[in-house]
């Protein structure tokens, strides 16, 4: 479901969010970890960008920096820009950022149970936003909260607003989180591993719901995940992250057809497929680097099967190969043009 086939005739949509050359360090007494080393990506209105990567690749830290909820200390954004509709956020005042959160951008998390407050009803937590940000009365706000629960297809919403998070099942909690994040009608939603803790049948329901809401509201969606299957079903564009960098960025279809970075290629070959019984899985050897001690040159070179001298010395920049296809590999051109 790409933004261009919604009948807009391919005219470019306004840019919603642009992250450029973002650097974040985590400083601890023992060491400084370079968690982000020049991350850049963008999202347009109504578009789904999937940020794909393994643990420690920096995908969640980027999202936290965008939202302005990075724990400081230990995390410090040392360089780069984050622009929301052209407005620079990293240097913005906390008050302004607080205004934007909820109203313009919102985030949902993997673990909905710990993201909800156990001592307040679900309805109260959703209604809070209407009361404090819209100045509604308790009664009106609760009615609006019930509407929101209804929107995310929670059956019997009028009763459910009075219940506590522990009375909800895992899938319903995630729905309640989505209702809460959309309460003030933001146009950018960041979903950080929204379905990782859920069972597959429920995951499918939640992904359908997110996609439907995105389309209805023409919202930009950043979907952070490690699941290549989920990405293939909903993403318009994909940014693959490794060791705090975007190593490949592309439209979904071309990326799956022919990855332009050996890491992406390795990831794809490591998934056990449902539709085939394989023998040996091609795995990526070794481990992701220690972020306090990233190898020189291309950070992926110690695990890469095609690494050469150049890779050990020069960091490959993310460069454009074809329209809309970017890769940070010295041999990207070879990868993309082989049969």
């Amino acid at each position: 479901m790409s933004a261009t086939d919604d009948g807009t005739g391919g005219s470019p949509k306004p840019r919603l969010l642009e992250v450029q050359d973002l650097h974040v360090e985590f400083r601890t007494r023992e060491a400084t970890a370079n968690v982000l080393n020049g991350v850049g990506y963008h999202v347009d209105e109504g578009e789904t960008l999937a940020v794909l990567g393994e643990s420690g690749s920096g995908k969640s830290v980027t999202a936290q920096t965008v939202m302005g909820i990075l724990d400081t200390p230990p995390g410090f954004a040392t360089a780069g820009t984050v622009r929301y509709r052209g407005e620079e956020l990293l240097s913005a005042k906390e008050e302004r950022r607080r205004e934007l959160r909820g109203e313009n951008m919102a985030m949902i998390f993997q673990d909905a149970l710990s993201a909800l407050n156990p001592v307040y009803t679900v309805g109260f937590q959703i209604a809070e936003q209407f009361r404090f940000r819209r100045g509604m009365s308790r009664k009106d706000a609760t009615a609006k909260a019930a509407e929101m629960l209804d929107l995310v297809k929670i059956p019997n919403a009028k009763q459910r607003v009075k219940e506590f998070p522990h009375q909800f099942s895992g899938g319903m909690r995630q729905r309640a989180m989505i209702a809460m994040s959309l309460a003030l009608d933001p146009d950018l939603l960041i979903a950080d591993e929204p379905t990782t803790a859920l069972d597959v049948t429920v995951q499918a329901q939640i992904m359908d719901l997110l996609d439907e809401l995105r389309r209805e509201r023409d919202m930009g969606l950043i979907l952070i995940t490690h699941d290549l299957g989920v990405v293939a079903e909903v993403a318009d564009r994909i940014a693959v992250m490794y060791a705090g960098r975007v190593v490949e960025e592309s439209d979904a279809e071309s990326l799956y057809k022919r990855p332009a970075h050996p890491y992406t290629e390795g990831l794809m070959e490591s998934i056990p497929r449902l539709d085939q019984k394989g023998e040996e899985l091609a795995s990526i050897k070794g481990l992701p680097p220690n972020l306090a001690d990233i190898p020189p040159g291309c950070p992926f070179h110690p695990r890469c099967h095609r690494a050469e001298e150049e890779c050990r010395e020069t960091v490959p920049e993310l460069h454009e190969l074809r329209a809309g296809r970017h890769s940070a590999c010295h041999f990207a051109e070879e990868l993309i043009s082989r049969d």
């Binding site: 479901m1 099942s169 895992g170 899938g171 319903m172 069972d199 597959v200 049948t201 429920v202 995951q203 499918a204 329901q205 992904m207 359908d208 699941d227 290549l228 299957g229 989920v230 990405v231 293939a232 079903e233 993403a235 979904a252 279809e253 799956y256 057809k257 794809m268 998934i271 497929r273 449902l274 539709d275």
Partner: peptide, 27 residues
């Protein structure tokens, strides 16, 4: 059948072309 159908397939070209069975509710 529903379980198998819920598993996302890592191939964007099959998007919307696959028969899908969606279960409602939770276990």
């Amino acid at each position: 059948q529903a379980l198998l159908s819920s598993v996302p397939v890592p191939d964007p070209s099959l998007r919307n072309r696959r028969e899908t069975i969606r279960l409602s509710g939770d276990v």
